[in-house]
């Protein structure tokens, strides 16, 4: 297999073509376009109920130039299992990829995802994480970050935004011990390309988790999508790593942690957040940062936090970074 390495080597032969109905600045469309470029023509796509199915497959048109199937919301792990079994029996060489949203992965689709991962099905599962049920109008999901406004975590007089922290889906998937799992950012292209290529080349259950900023859902400017994705990594809201045959490896380490407010201030969904909530989110982020990147270098942002209040990041014992 030829290594693509950089964005310049990307094939121009698009499998997800323009004409789709995504909002301008949609991070999910950017991710799908590039994933499909790398996967190429020998690919079979399953898309569950989500923004993606609505923007890409409205009869009688399609933005996918590959075979495509849709049936329901919660069954990406299962339908892709069936497709792969059939194609293997028919002797077809094809990457079977499920392109699911965070709702279809973290929440309603978690069971089917777990089943497929546990059976080590030979499929590529991509979670396009825009941190909410966007297709149905921006409702909270298990992927929505702490503090964020959504239509079901409204900013009320008594309760403001989501009170729970984002579920760690990568840790959940990694606990199934799959051949490959990686987190991706649309702002870090070389890393993005390498991970998709690696996932494509491997056999068995592969999981890619992409942060895909959503303009209406995040109340952001359509020109800022990639910048927000970049800031997510620089503030620690998103971490780039991969788990390969049980070993976790950081693939990109920011030089120093930027304060989370740099990330929050570009998004209307966080506009209401008060100092106490921001501090709580920052604390959580610091714990996550030290877990991923080690705590030899104390981050100035974290040093400002009250001593002794450092919270434990969940799964600290389970993930071992090498």
């Amino acid at each position: 297999m030829s290594e693509m390495g950089t964005i310049k080597d990307m094939p121009a032969n698009d499998m997800f073509v323009s004409g789709h109905g995504a909002c301008p600045g949609c991070g999910m469309a950017v991710a799908v376009k590039n994933i499909m470029r790398i996967l190429g023509a020998d690919t079979t796509v399953y898309v569950p109920a989500s923004c993606l199915v609505v923007i890409s497959a409205m009869y009688p048109t399609s933005s996918f130039r590959t075979p495509f199937l849709f049936t329901a919301f919660e069954n990406t792990g299962a339908v892709t299992t069936g497709i792969r079994a059939a194609q293997r029996r028919r002797g077809l060489r094809s990457t079977v990829v499920g392109l699911a949203g965070d709702g279809g992965t973290f929440d309603i689709g978690l069971q089917a995802l777990s089943g497929a991962a546990e059976r080590n099905e030979d499929i590529l599962y991509v979670c396009l994480d825009n941190e909410g049920f966007m297709n149905t109008g921006i409702q909270r999901s298990g992927a929505t970050p702490f503090g964020a406004w959504t239509t079901t975590t409204p900013v009320g007089k008594k309760v403001e935004g989501k009170r729970e922290f984002k579920k760690d889906i990568m840790a959940i998937v990694a606990a199934h011990d799959p051949p490959y799992a990686a987190s991706l950012s649309i702002a870090h292209y070389n890393d993005f390309i390498k991970k998709v290529e690696k996932a494509k080349s491997k056999q068995g259950f592969r999981f890619l988790h992409v942060l895909t900023p959503c303009v209406p859902g995040w109340r952001s400017d359509s020109s800022m999508t990639v910048e927000i994705a970049r800031l997510a990594v620089e503030t620690g809201m998103w971490t780039l790593y991969e788990v390969e045959d049980g070993n976790a490896r950081t693939t990109y380490k920011p030089k120093a942690m930027l304060p989370v407010t740099d990330y929050l201030k570009l998004q209307g969904r966080f506009r209401h957040m008060e100092d106490a909530d921001i501090a709580q989110l920052q604390e959580w982020l610091c714990a996550k940062w030290y877990l991923h990147y080690g705590d030899e270098i104390e981050q100035p942002v974290c040093a400002m936090l009250e001593k002794g209040k450092r919270m434990r990041y969940p799964h600290e014992e389970q993930l071992h970074f090498v």
């Binding site: 079979t44 399953y46 199937l69 049936t71 329901a72 919660e74 069954n75 792990g77 299962a78 339908v79 892709t80 299992t81 069936g82 497709i83 792969r84 079994a85 059939a86 194609q87 029996r89 028919r90 069971q111 089917a112 777990s114 089943g115 546990e118």
Partner: peptide, 18 residues
């Protein structure tokens, strides 16, 4: 992992041609 998934797998397999 469930009957919902069993039917979903059957759908994938049937659409896959077996």
């Amino acid at each position: 992992d469930s009957e919902h998934s069993a039917m979903s797998i059957a759908i994938g397999a049937s659409a896959g041609g077996v």
